[in-house]
Amino acid sequence: MEFQNILSEKNQGILQITVNRPSKLNALNKATIHELHEAFWAAGGDEDVKVIILTGSGEKAFVAGADISEFSDYSSEEGKALAAQGQEKLFNYIANFPKPVIAAINGFALGGGLELALAAHFRIASENAKMGLPEVSLGVIPGYGGTQRLPQLVGKGRAMEMIMTAGMIDANQALQYNLVNHVTSQEELLEFAEKLAGKIMKNSLVAIKSAIKAVNANYEDGVNGFETEIEEFGRCFGTADFEEGTSAFLNKRKADFPGE
């Protein structure tokens, strides 16, 4: 599959997807959102892909926001459709993706870029990272899940402050806010992400898929997360991975999960 705006590279179970528009600080446009969806869709059906690392090209930006020139003249209805389509095609798609997604934030992650990182299952950042939701400075609000996912991670008050001031926070403040899990040097960012991916891949990816579903259920309106947990817990008992994992534990050996 050929892409114009992203790079996709697979190595030993890890798929690195890189937003590659360095001249635009990797800003998201419609074409990039479509290509990201296509890359994730393909990864979902690729048995060789176990974990995805999502990052941006160059040293300046993860994704420095949306490409404002594409929607500066939109009507209210067009704006509503833009948010709905983007959330369905990419941001919600990533948040509910059945394989682990790690956002490796290098440089600016602003607006839609931060929302892209928020959609990942967890985030790590380089020391030079800057994060924020500046939309209100343009007379609009975050439309790709930022008003929902940011409070879940940092709390309502901090999210309100970030959104209302349209300001940026640095990597260390993001770590204090629980917005990111780890901070590394820029040189070590991807290597650290790969190490985390390696730890993940030692475990049952079938069980991890169930864990993603159960954790996400807690944040869905009208869904009882405890019931989803019970359902997924029971489902795990019928898998070959459960049989292998328990057998390995009882026989004091390392598990070799079949992924079934």
Rank of each mutant, 00 (worst) to 15 (best):
D67P: 03
D67F: 15
D67T: 05
I68M: 15
I68Q: 14
S69R: 13
S69W: 06
S69A: 13
E70Q: 09
F71T: 04
F71Y: 08
F71N: 03
S72E: 06
Y74G: 00
S75L: 09
S76V: 08
S76E: 09
E77P: 00
K80C: 01
L82C: 01
A84L: 07
Q85E: 14
G86A: 10
Q87A: 00
Q87R: 14
K89C: 05
K89V: 14
L90Q: 11
F91D: 12
N92I: 00
A95C: 07
P98V: 05
P100K: 10
P100Y: 15
V101C: 15
I102Q: 07
I102S: 11
A103F: 00
A104H: 04
N106I: 08
G107H: 04
F108S: 11
A109D: 14
L110F: 07
L110N: 07
L110Q: 04
L110Y: 04
G111N: 01
G112C: 00
L114K: 03
E115S: 10
E115F: 08
E115V: 03
L116Q: 08
L116M: 03
A117G: 12
A117K: 05
L118K: 02
L118G: 03
A120K: 07
A120L: 07
A120S: 15
F122N: 03
R123M: 14
K130F: 07
L133P: 09
P134F: 02
P134N: 05
S137C: 02
G139R: 00
G139S: 01
G139K: 09
G139V: 08
V140R: 13
V140C: 12
V140A: 15
P142S: 09
P142C: 04
G143D: 12
G143P: 10
Y144F: 15
Y144V: 03
G145R: 11
G145H: 06
G146L: 03
T147K: 04
R149F: 07
P151M: 12
P151Y: 10
Q152W: 08
Q152C: 02
Q152G: 02
L153S: 06
G155P: 08
G155M: 01
K156V: 11
M160A: 11
E161C: 05
E161V: 13
E161I: 11
M162G: 00
I163V: 14
I163W: 09
M164E: 06
A166T: 14
A166N: 11
A166L: 10
G167R: 10
M168P: 01
M168R: 13
I169A: 06
I169G: 02
D170G: 15
Q173L: 14
Q173G: 02
Q173I: 07
Q173K: 15
L175N: 02
Q176H: 05
Y177W: 13
N178E: 12
N178P: 01
N178H: 15
N178R: 14
